[in-house]
Design a protein around this nucleic acid. Structure first.
Lengths: 210, 210
DNA sequence: ATGAATTTTCACTATATTTTGCAATTCCCT
DNA sequence: AGGGAATTGCAAAATATAGTGAAAATTCAT
């Protein structure tokens, strides 16, 4: 089967689309109007054939002999990834990590706005951290349902991560970005992704001389 | 070819080893002495066959009928990944992100000690941030060569990431964990890994209803 | 001791992903 | 207007990754 929509796209392909988008935004920033799979490939160290094939899953975005219109391709990728709108995000865990995440400016301009910061500890609830006043975790459901929040970032200790994740799911969260260094089980219809810098470091030390 | 060392191990396999190690540490924490590929697989949502196959690349670590000794397997994986020692790490970029990274306690107990925090901006050099006094980037080479630092975390703005990475490489850094949302080119013998939470969020929004 | 239940290991098979080769299209130069 | 260079999109081939099935080893209960 070829081109267009309706067939399921491999996850590995979906995982590369944000990289394409990121590279395209930089091209756009440099006022480039068109690019090619080859140029993108060089910048991303991905083969040009790979990029063409990935993109062709969603329809013919390019023009033979010419390449891809940067702006058009950005629009299409944003639509495919559903990031042509602003998503609200809840951060859970107001320790060092959660507090750093909620103050980090890099989410805003890429389509994700941190709306609230939650914690379970009475010591922290009510405290002011950057732009946020820490809210009690048990007010999560009310808040997210009234504000339509569907994404959460989890920044609690590993010991509590599974139980907090369960609460997030119960509250109606549909996607969790977990910063705790532990695997979490969630229902199939809930998305989960992991951020653990240490696993990346360990991947690299394998290749370093002892 | 089977078992033992000498053949090259696929990167995708290396990438899973830190996850096994992480899960094993938790088992160890719970005083478990033995485990099985099946148990590990359930916790990690990876098939047991996959886990057995991955481990067998490095020799027979398990016992038929019994499973894997938790402590022994941890030791072997640490040896394979070269994390049976403490690695020193330099953080470059003393903005919000670099400062949060250098104060995060989660590296220390998993084999990575942040040794120094560098920045290029005269405003920041000399400032005290947590346990660190911000050092000038141009003192990097002297410092890392005298202290044997081979790993750096890069937390500078995307605009400067490539040029700072070039400086890191010139200074003798062999592995870079890049937090800037941009692809970096480094020589083949230098390792690079990326942390960009936004790409993970975008991967998930693909699966969320618009 | 024996047999049933586990569980690894390993060769083989199946599936998934990437690369290759090429026709078709477009642009650009003369 | 014509020819050469660039570039996509797609089918087919090649490669990489994951899963299967069965033999061998181990434990445990009787």
């Amino acid at each position: 089967m070829s081109g267009k929509s309706a067939d399921v796209i491999p996850e590995i392909v979906i995982g590369r689309l944000p990289l394409y988008l990121r590279a395209l935004r930089r091209l756009q920033n440099d006022r480039r109007r068109v690019t090619s799979s080859q140029e993108l490939g060089e910048r991303l160290e991905i083969s040009s054939a790979q990029i063409r094939k990935d993109l062709s899953h969603f329809g013919g975005f390019g023009k033979q002999g010419t390449g891809y219109q940067v702006e058009f391709l950005i629009e299409r990728l944003e639509a495919v990834l559903h990031v042509n709108k602003e998503w609200l995000v809840a951060v859970v865990g107001a320790g060092n990590l959660g507090s750093a995440i909620s103050q980090y400016r890099g989410f805003q301009d890429r389509g994700f706005r941190i709306a609230h910061l939650f914690d379970i500890s009475p010591n922290k609830i009510g405290a002011r951290l950057g732009d946020f006043v820490v809210r009690p975790l048990d007010s999560l459901e009310t808040t997210i349902r009234s504000e339509g929040i569907r994404i959460a970032m989890l920044a609690v200790p590993a010991e509590n991560a599974q139980s907090v994740a369960d609460q997030l799911v119960a509250a109606g969260i549909k996607a969790i970005l977990n910063y705790a260094p532990i695997n979490i089980n969630v229902p199939d219809q809930v998305q989960i992704q992991y951020i653990d810098p240490v696993t990346h470091l360990q991947r690299m030390t394998y290749y370093l001389d002892d």
